[in-house]
Design a binder for these strands. Structure first.
Length: 399
DNA sequence: CGTATTTGACCAGCGC
DNA sequence: GCGCTGGTCAAATACG
């Protein structure tokens, strides 16, 4: 045990050195699984905003100059093609990948905790084509490195994009899947055969929508504000880094997340959220205010607390965290709106997976959210909100 | 002592 | 059918 800790420490040091040697340089993540290769790049942006939290683990947060993703996250028009694609294989962990070729910053600080995006290269458009068929039933998981396209779909649509592995599941949009974790818990209490039976039963259902993020960090389990319990760890094929499985500890909340590091860049943490929180975000308003203070200054100040919890949604809000995400399986759109309390809201009945709490009832529109003096204003600087809206317009104009 | 983590075992799905 | 892999369980262990 002690030896392992030492080894881990040594490994992290090596990783840190590696990161230092590559900072401000182009970062590539190359996935080589099965017969497929995917390459994503993060290039340093010359016009980024730094949001330096100066914490031990959560450090510099950078904003890419191009806000296109932010726009797509917050206020992507329902009918517009979604700029991200889901990549089921070769690495199912990278569930969502940006379609656009916008450049995002990579970390410029070795101790930074930044959320970098890795825009796809043009030559891979075939792999991330948003115009791929949404559903490919009866295909096998490993048959192809397919991309589940969410683009043409309306978030409100019940038509479901599905990976080859996943079964189309209309239930997601109907919030039926929220029952699954509870069912699972009930059956876990039963005998083993019962559990297995339940497992088999559940597997007939599609997995819940997933959203993946690539994060640059030296810690694996990023503090997103929710409480997670680790329930498993598996070695990842073709990667020296294991994949960890976490489950939200809140009773009745079946949200899961998986965390693994890129084998190519050990500082790239890939976090995939699956499911929907059935409870409010646990962070207090005061915390949020602490968080957003430096953001309002556009990174000029710092927030120093290594234990400070930054929820994923707020990563998005502040562009700290560029999601390689798109919709997966269930017409889930990226966060289209922010509710008045700062919680993300998905259009339709399907809320953004992992980001909780469906506040759709409370949300009316982006405009109202901006006007609202609730938590959103604590979280999202007016400038960013404005940028978000503007960027969306720009994005629409491009289409 | 309650909670969280670790880790080996197990199962389902899939490819061959 | 067999082997591989991803995902999950649950007992053991660690931790505060």
């Amino acid at each position: 045990m002690e030896k392992k800790i030492e080894e881990d420490h040594h490994q992290k040091q090596q990783q840190m050195e590696q990161l230092n040697s590559t900072k401000n340089t182009e970062t590539k993540i190359q996935h080589q699984e099965d017969q497929q290769q995917q390459m994503f790049q993060a290039t340093t942006s010359s016009h980024m905003a730094n949001l330096d939290t100066s914490s031990d683990h959560h450090h510099q947060l950078e904003l890419a100059g191009n806000n296109i993703n932010l726009a797509s996250i917050f206020d992507a028009p329902v009918s517009s093609p979604f700029p991200y694609s889901y990549l089921e294989d070769p690495d199912p962990f990278l569930d969502f990948l940006p379609q656009d070729h916008h450049q995002f910053s990579s970390s410029s600080n070795s101790s930074s905790f930044s959320f970098d995006a890795f825009p796809l290269q043009n030559n891979n458009t075939n792999l991330f084509n948003t115009d791929l068929p949404l559903s490919q039933p009866s295909t096998t998981k490993r048959a192809s490195s397919e991309v589940v396209n969410i683009a043409p779909m309306s978030p409100n649509s019940n038509s479901v994009s599905s990976s080859s592995k996943e079964v189309a599941n209309d239930n997601i949009d109907k919030n039926v899947t929220l029952k699954d974790p509870e069912e699972g818990e009930q059956e876990q209490k039963g005998t083993k055969p019962q559990r297995l039976k339940a497992k088999k039963k559940n597997q007939k259902k599609a997995r819940e929508a997933r959203v993946a993020f690539l994060t640059r960090s030296d810690i694996d389990n990023l503090d997103d504000g929710y409480r997670w319990r680790k329930y498993g760890q598996k070695a990842v094929k073709n990667s020296p880094y294991p994949r960890s499985y976490y489950r939200c500890t809140t009773v009745g909340c079946g949200v899961k997340k998986r965390v693994e590091r890129s084998s190519d860049d050990p500082y790239i943490v890939m976090t995939t959220y699956e499911g929907q929180h059935t409870h409010p975000f646990p962070m207090t308003r005061g915390h949020i205010a602490m968080l957003t203070s430096p953001i309002l200054d556009h990174g000029a100040t710092t927030t120093s607390s290594s234990s400070f919890a930054i929820p994923q949604p707020r990563y998005l809000l502040t562009q700290h965290h560029q999601p390689y995400s798109s919709m997966y399986n269930n017409s889930l759109s990226m966060i289209n709106r922010s509710s008045s309390d700062g919680t993300f809201v998905n259009p339709g009945s399907s809320s953004f997976p992992g980001f909780g709490y469906d506040m759709s009832q409370a949300s009316t529109s982006t405009t109202s959210a901006i006007r609202d003096h609730g938590l959103l204003q604590d979280i999202l600087p007016s400038q960013i909100r404005s940028d978000t809206t503007n960027t969306r317009t720009n994005q629409e104009d491009k289409k």
